[in-house]
Amino acid sequence: MAKATKDVIYGLYNDEEVLMNAVKVANSKHLEIMEVFTPFPVHGLDPLLGFEESRLHIGGFIYGGLGTLTAFLGMTWIFTKDWPVIFGGKPYWSVPAFIPITFELTVLFAAIGMVVTFYIINGMGPGIKLPILDNRITDDKFCIAFDKSTVDASTAESFLKETGAEEIDSKII
């Protein structure tokens, strides 16, 4: 599957506070930031970039509910319809005894579902290659990248310089 390439201009900052400040400046100048890359989660950055709260946890709730139903209805069907057996004189449909497994499957489904969703929506997986602008982004560099087709390259460059980027470079990804 061929992906459309992007011509990107980016700047590397040395500190997350400088980066946050730069994002604020970019917002006030209405420069459209393509992407920000950081070595660790920077708190307070999401609202500046206009990110809405992640909906992953809603997914988790739905997956968990699916687990609850699978376990509870599964055990109900098995012990009342498919193969009813009396254990210790208890009723076939002995709800309290179903609770532990129902709980465990709720957690199991929610966790597996969320993690799989996380990797799918990130476009990540074993052996997948995503564009890496600089090898030091996973070390100590904070990066702001602009798409040259939406932001004029010279405007972007002067913005990066003014806001304290240590290095500025272009790359086609």
Binding site: E35, V36, F37, T38, P39, F40, P41, V42, L45, D46, L49, F51, E53, S54, L56, H57, M114, V115, F118, Y119, I121, N122, G123, M124, G125, P126, G127, I128, K129, L130, P131, I132, L133, I137, T138, C143
Partner: peptide, 18 residues
Amino acid sequence: LSFGWNGSAKHWQRWESI
């Protein structure tokens, strides 16, 4: 092993959420 991780701010947000 790193599944293509590149430190994107959106990925970090989801990572913290998960």
